[in-house]
Write a protein that binds this DNA or RNA. Structure first.
Lengths: 256, 256
DNA sequence: CGCATCCTTGAGGGCCATCAAAATGCGTGG
DNA sequence: CCACGCATTTTGATGGCCCTCAAGGATGCG
């Protein structure tokens, strides 16, 4: 999908135009896109970091991430652990609808804009719009695929490579939803966040960050990550983007 | 659910009687149970370890694990990494239907019996049986919840505690599907498998196994794991079973 | 009883945690 | 415009967890 298409999609659907973009958005009918857009009951913009959804609680709505970034976290005894990361267009807690209760928290970082979709509407889609329902299902399965990759990443890689993998993934995902940038990306992630995401101490993350800088793989500074050579980054991270189910290798185009 | 109920359920539905048992099986209508049972087109028993589903391939059926254990794996440069584990009653690759292609492998360990469900049947359920479709969705989200816990476990715990966590999870899951055993459980997992699951070397796993034995937490020997004190095991592993969505805290009983 | 698989043990070294402290950058208010 | 407070980043030192290489012992199966 070229930039122009993405821009017009976001113009037509300012709240949900990035949903499944770069994935199966091309499988959505225009009526489905309009329906989804109309399901956003209200939006909210948060300037400061906040826990927007809490483990164990029941919610009557699900949350679409319209702008900004959030972390999916679990609390340890004295630390917070990040188990995944979301970019604009992600239907962050769609699975909350099907699971009833959340098994984790959603925490914002930096400024975000969220859209809320009542669960009754999702239940109605399940009954009346099986094709859209299936795309909802697909979107939650994308999360699961990314979780699996994170598991392997944690089992296999050193901290420096884990960070490189995280950057490679975020960069690709931003690309897919039309927020790419050829030199890197802007992000409110701090080294402390990276520590929560990589299972390392903040101090060790700092050394890994220095290593990536010295190797010329990634330059992390406040609010931005610059990457001179994408291929080098992905090679270093042993990153293979199949699991993101982009429009290439693993894409699905069947029985609609 | 008491043992008697489980036994009668498995007697009535020998192939799929354990599906969602301990979770939302009580939400299934009898007609849905019968329907699911009839969806198993054929079964197969494998005596030796085998890769039954391969990353990147497209399949026209999904696989129900009827008996035995399988690993969900990803291949590294020279190692295999296990990202999750399945027990009888798990609809192992239901998400393969919605994702189109698999992003990982499914490998058997020990002897297993599998049931195959054609994807057309699942598509039909999506169209005609939204309630059952939602339960299918739920079951794939359970996998995601377990993935998240694995991520945190890998970020947080030492190898010995990771192993304890793995044992605690497997034991609970076996309990839920009526295969519990008050003193531990039987499993074909070797120390090499545990290494693949915990992101440690087989040698280090061996030392962690010794540690668990010396601490009196778990005694691992060929084909069996004995656990004298469940509470002690779970305490050591920092194990909290919420994420398994058993019939306790996080359970869902709504709008059917 | 021979073989394959699995388990166990020892030694040296690297990755990473933790404790402690300091430097840097950023927003706010004076 | 500067000063202050705060979050973030950086550096150094010590020790523990875990890796790798290497070898040996146990168990089960044909």
């Amino acid at each position: 999908m070229v930039d122009l298409e993405i821009a017009s999609e976001v113009e037509a659907f300012p709240l949900t135009g990035r949903f499944l973009m770069g994935r199966l958005r091309h499988d959505m009918f225009e009526a489905e896109k309009a329906l989804l857009e109309s399901m956003i009951e209200r939006t909210r913009t948060l300037a400061r970091p906040e826990r927007i959804l809490e483990k164990g609680k029941v919610y009557s709505y699900s949350t679409m991430l319209i702008d900004g970034f959030v972390l999916r976290t679990l609390d340890g005894v004295q630390n917070r652990y990040a188990v995944s990361f979301h970019v604009p267009g992600d239907f962050v807690d769609l699975h909350c609808f099907a699971l009833g209760r959340l098994d984790h928290n959603i925490d914002t970082i930096g400024e975000v804009t969220l859209g809320y979709v009542p669960h009754e509407q999702i239940a109605w889609v399940m009954r009346e719009h099986p094709h859209l329902a299936r795309l909802f299902w697909f979107s939650t399965l994308l999360d699961a695929a990314m979780h699996r990759e994170w598991v392997m990443k944690l089992e296999q890689l050193t901290t420096a490579r884990r960070l490189a993998h995280i950057f490679a993934e975020i960069w690709r995902r931003l690309d897919m939803v039309g927020l790419g940038d050829p030199k890197g990306f802007a992000t409110p992630l701090t080294q402390a966040h990276l520590a929560e995401m990589s299972g390392a101490s903040a101090i060790h993350v700092n050394r890994a960050v220095s290593e990536l800088r010295e190797l010329g793989i990634a330059d992390i500074h406040r609010g931005r990550i610059d990457i001179p050579d994408r291929a080098a980054l992905e090679r270093f991270a042993l990153f293979e983007p199949d699991y993101l189910y982009g429009e290439g290798t693993l894409s699905m185009r069947q029985d609609r």
